[in-house]
């Protein structure tokens, strides 16, 4: 009564598979397609902007055209990039601190059930709250310098990283857990060899979310505190009605934000696999 078992394994023909070179070429082509599409979008936007300025004859102290903005960008490039560098330094320090704090707390909460039961609902509840609202308070505490920027980035970046890392630590599948238990692994081995590898994709998601909101929060903190970053520069330029400089700073910060967003998303996609 045994039916003949089909023993042929479905092997793909290796000659039909793309080689590494072909795959790299395809990826490169996709990259150039993406770049050209972005360039086209920016080009259309700039053309519309210049056209509108020229058509309605908008004076330069209301809104400058693309050419004036570019001129300001070239003339005051040092100032713009100096301010941007200041902001990005704050963002980087803040994110590093946020990762350190979030991961250590995440490990503690994962290992200790009572701590998790007592504090996790509070952490989850704080997630619905707009944490950026504490920026004025941080200015009062940390003064008007880089400290406020760092503290704001830490507070904003902490929650997504920690919540995602916790979810990752918990995502160890029960069979793996049992295997480790049967093999007599210590909690340390379980953490290093199972929990952390399982948590990595979640962790990168958290990091992406944190990174994209970090620039906005840093600029906001600078603008309120008066630290010499790009957020302050935009408002100083607005105050002096130096519109070309303001538009250049806005364009630079938007480009930075999109770059960071794109890099973080791409990094997440590569590392989370």
């Amino acid at each position: 009564m045994t039916s003949p078992v089909d023993t042929t394994v479905d092997t793909p023909d290796w000659r039909a598979l793309p080689t590494r070179g072909q795959r790299a070429e395809a990826r490169l082509a996709a990259f150039w397609r993406f770049i050209s599409r972005v360039a086209l979008g920016v080009g259309i936007l700039v053309a519309l902007w210049g056209g509108a300025i020229a058509l309605f004859d908008v004076p330069i102290f209301v809104a400058p055209g693309p050419l004036d903005t570019w001129q300001a960008f070239v003339e005051q490039g040092d100032r713009l990039f100096g301010a941007l560098g200041f902001t990005l330094t704050g963002v980087a320090i803040g994110l590093a601190l946020a990762v350190a704090i979030a991961l250590s707390l995440g490990v503690i909460f994962t290992l200790s059930a009572p701590a998790s039961r007592a504090f996790m609902p509070l952490v989850i509840g704080l997630r619905t709250v707009p944490v950026l609202a504490v920026a004025p308070l941080l200015i009062m505490i940390f003064g008007r310098g880089q400290g406020t920027t760092v503290a704001t980035v830490v507070i904003v970046g902490f929650f997504p990283i920690m919540v995602n890392a916790m979810r990752g630590f918990r995502s160890v599948s029960p069979t793996v857990h049992e295997l480790f238990h049967v093999a007599g692994a210590t909690w340390w081995q379980l953490l290093i060899k199972a929990r952390i590898p399982f948590a990595l994709p979640f962790f990168f998601t958290g990091l992406r979310v944190a990174t994209t909101s970090a620039l906005l929060s840093a600029m906001l903190a600078e603008w309120l505190s008066g630290a010499p970053g790009i957020g302050r520069l935009i408002y100083d330029a607005l105050g002096y009605r130096d519109m070309p400089l303001m538009f250049a700073a806005v364009a630079l910060s938007m480009a930075t934000a999109f770059t960071i967003f794109g890099l973080a998303t791409a990094l997440e996609r590569r590392l989370a696999r």
Binding site: V62, A63, T212, L215, L216, M219, L220, W223, G231, I234, Y235, L238, M243, M246, F247, A249, V250, S253, M254, A257, F258, F261
Partner: peptide, 19 residues
């Protein structure tokens, strides 16, 4: 949607203030 989401609000607001 992604463009709107990743635009730093603080950067666009001054342009809006002008208008």
């Amino acid at each position: 949607g992604v463009l709107v989401d990743s635009t730093p609000l603080i950067a666009v607001a001054p342009i809006l203030i002008v208008f």
